[in-house]
Design a protein around this nucleic acid. Structure first.
Lengths: 117, 117
DNA sequence: ATCCGATGATACGGAGCCGAAACGACGACC
DNA sequence: GGTCGTCGTTTCGGCTCCGTATCATCGGAT
């Protein structure tokens, strides 16, 4: 089951095939930073704040704010003020975002399955 | 050895960790298209032409030209006129590019090895 | 009430990429 | 030699992102 041992050539081939698949059907494509933010929101346990994401990615806060603007317009995430401390913004998942991430996972495993070994 | 069977959650976690690792040590980061082009040059058998890469990625030719400009300035690839048909441009690998790709492969397998299963 | 630290958003100038169209150099063919 | 198709590049306006600095709001301590 699910053993994950890759050799470099296979790892690179997997990455190539996934990026090629992502580019070909032109969906709203994300930058690497946006992808990292989105995956962190959907894989790491909540709550997610702007400063927390900035620390996790080791980037400045405006990077997070802008990425949330963009992905919010895409309906991939949503923002809500923390009622317990109104300085905080809590980033929440959306149905569309969950579907996007799920589909992306399917692309990866599909490309991994089709790897010539 | 090298079996590649991933479940969606693990595949996504792998992608997250690799993107996080790439972002944190700020190296010359590539767009997804640039990454796909670079990997295609280094993984697919040569020769590589502009139109060939454009067809492989299903994008317009100027996209390839501009990506080669950028990655050429980074010394990751080099361009040479085809002496047999001087309309063609042959894209060749460089030492720096090979090291870049190799290191990227190492990052992937390292993150795959550290996956909590 | 007031100061102070923290949190997230915004303003600004600069740089890069995008798609579409036009362009210049080259080869093939009659 | 003239014409046509091919190949890669360049141009154009527009959009997004970047990093830094600044801002408004809020909570906590005095």
């Amino acid at each position: 089951m699910m053993s994950v041992s890759l050799r470099p050539a296979e790892a690179l081939r997997l990455w190539q095939n996934v990026t090629l698949a992502e580019i070909k059907d032109d969906r709203p494509d994300l930058t690497m930073r946006q992808a990292a933010i989105l995956l962190t929101i959907y894989l790491d346990p909540p709550p997610h704040t702007v400063r927390g994401l900035a620390a996790r990615l080791n980037v400045a806060k405006p990077v997070i704010t802008r990425a949330l603007d963009t992905m919010g317009a895409m309906k991939l995430v949503s923002r809500h003020r923390d009622p317990r401390d109104r300085r905080n913004v809590l980033v929440r998942r959306t149905v569309e975002g969950a579907l996007f991430v799920e589909r992306f996972g399917d692309v990866i495993i599909e490309q991994a399955r089709d790897l010539p070994l």
